[in-house]
Simulated scan of single mutants.
Amino acid sequence: MAKNLKEMLARKLAENNQRHRESSQEAEFEEGRQHVRLALGVIDPNPYQPRRSFPLDELNSLASSIAEAGLLQPITVRRHEDRYQLIAGERRLKAHELLGKTSIEAIVVPSADADLAVLALAENIDRQDLADFEIGLALRRIESLFPSKKKLAESLGLNREDMYRYFAFEALPPRLRSRLEKAPRLLARSAATELKRLLEQTPASVELDAALDQAWDCLEQGQLEQGKLAAFVARQLAQPEVSRPLPSPRQAWKLARDGQQVGSMSRDDKHVILKLKAGVLSDDEIHQLEQFVSQLLSHEV
């Protein structure tokens, strides 16, 4: 699916570029042909960058390649007020920073926000597959650039059903999405869709939270395949609760005086309860009872 999405985005980008070339807007330079060298300090990040992480080992490898062979492809930017905004090439830009360089070759092109977002997606999918989680976040960020989800799907060449699979990650609890931010390739959209379906059918509970956390721990440790994540959680919830011993039945005795019941005494696992009718004991007898109980508790009798 990532390959298909890449092709769809590439077609969309080609259409956008063709529309720009055919437009009659005035510009200070030949559109898409201004090849310049820019100071790194005047280039701002792409606000629609879909990639969540840039592994240092990959950046170091790219930096080594640039140091040895030079920059084979300039980055692409657009003018943004009195600065420039990155369209494509953030890894190349970061590699230049690692090398301590102060400037970089760039091609300046005019670009609308929607084109900026589409190109960022296309470049990342082309160079190194984005995780489905990252694509889903990127789609949400560019959603406001289109009048409706239908138009967003159409602009990318996706049907809405396919697009909504990328949104399945939103059903995960925030704590799991936070962990996914650090390892976005851990869960694909198909597994996320299955888990979303389970969460929609299962009432929130402490048991569900515990099962999700246990499943995610196993997933991160490589002990559980992502395609089996939802089934694992379902099995954990289906296990019978550990039987608990029933409390001992309450034992009770009737208390009588002169053949008449005047109260009761009972005990269970937690309490010993003495109940007497008011007026059965005189003040002196109540005092004697208090002394007896005190002596009993202090082991004096």
Rank of each mutant, 00 (worst) to 15 (best):
residue 226 Q to R: 10
residue 226 Q to G: 05
residue 286 I to Y: 10
residue 191 A to Y: 04
residue 136 G to P: 02
residue 82 D to M: 05
residue 97 E to C: 04
residue 254 K to Q: 14
residue 60 N to S: 12
residue 194 E to K: 15
residue 97 E to H: 08
residue 155 S to F: 01
residue 158 L to N: 00
residue 65 S to A: 15
residue 67 A to W: 04
residue 270 K to L: 13
residue 229 L to S: 06
residue 68 E to M: 11
residue 47 P to V: 07
residue 124 N to Q: 10
residue 111 S to C: 13
residue 88 A to N: 14
residue 209 D to Q: 11
residue 54 F to R: 11
residue 134 E to G: 02
residue 200 E to M: 08
residue 168 A to N: 03
residue 281 L to E: 05
residue 136 G to H: 01
residue 284 D to M: 13
residue 6 K to N: 09
residue 132 D to M: 03
residue 78 R to Q: 08
residue 230 A to V: 08
residue 97 E to D: 04
residue 264 S to Q: 15
residue 16 N to M: 12
residue 254 K to S: 14
residue 46 N to S: 11
residue 162 D to I: 08
residue 72 L to V: 06
residue 248 S to Y: 07
residue 260 Q to R: 15
residue 234 A to C: 06
residue 71 L to P: 10
residue 138 A to F: 00
residue 231 A to R: 15
residue 245 P to S: 10
residue 187 L to E: 01
residue 59 L to H: 03
residue 160 R to S: 12
residue 26 E to Y: 10
residue 105 E to R: 08
residue 28 E to W: 08
residue 1 M to V: 03
residue 37 R to S: 15
residue 193 T to K: 12
residue 49 Q to C: 08
residue 161 E to N: 11
residue 252 A to D: 06
residue 209 D to Y: 03
residue 6 K to Y: 14
residue 211 A to T: 05
residue 41 G to V: 12
residue 264 S to C: 06
residue 78 R to P: 01
residue 229 L to I: 07
residue 177 R to D: 06
residue 202 T to L: 03
residue 81 E to N: 10
residue 196 K to C: 11
residue 176 L to V: 02
residue 206 V to M: 12
residue 285 E to S: 07
residue 40 L to W: 02
residue 133 F to E: 04
residue 126 D to G: 03
residue 102 T to L: 10
residue 251 Q to K: 14
residue 138 A to E: 00
residue 221 Q to I: 04
